[in-house]
């Protein structure tokens, strides 16, 4: 009977904890990723180094950004390629 009563009284409020958790999760995804432009710049430089081993990139058009959706974050990179390196296509065959 207690179970029934507490369920009866609890029902109206159901989900306020879940709502808190979900809102917190989202706000932290954003907080944590938007912390430092320095981090993004470092990431960009390292990406550039790695990719340059395999292909020639148009550095002026190279962009790395974080984009926020309704309930997700994505790392979006735009990497225009000037030329593939021949050595690579040979070894890969």
């Amino acid at each position: 009977m207690w179970e029934f009563l507490s369920r009866l009284f609890g029902r109206e409020n159901e989900g306020s904890k879940a709502a808190a958790k979900e809102r917190l999760r989202l706000v932290l995804v954003h907080d944590r990723t938007s912390v430092s432009p320095y981090l993004l710049e470092t990431l960009k430089e390292e990406l550039l180094d790695v990719i340059s081993k395999y292909m020639e990139i148009d550095q002026a058009g190279f962009e790395v950004n974080l984009e926020q959706g309704d309930d997700s974050m994505a790392l979006v990179a735009n990497i225009p390629i000037k030329e593939m390196k021949r050595a690579l296509s040979k070894t890969k065959n």
């Binding site: 507490s6 609890g10 409020n13 159901e14 306020s16 904890k17 808190a20 958790k21």
Partner: peptide, 9 residues
């Protein structure tokens, strides 16, 4: 009651 985040959360 499920109206406050618990410690594990």
């Amino acid at each position: 009651r499920g109206d406050m985040m618990d410690i594990t959360d």
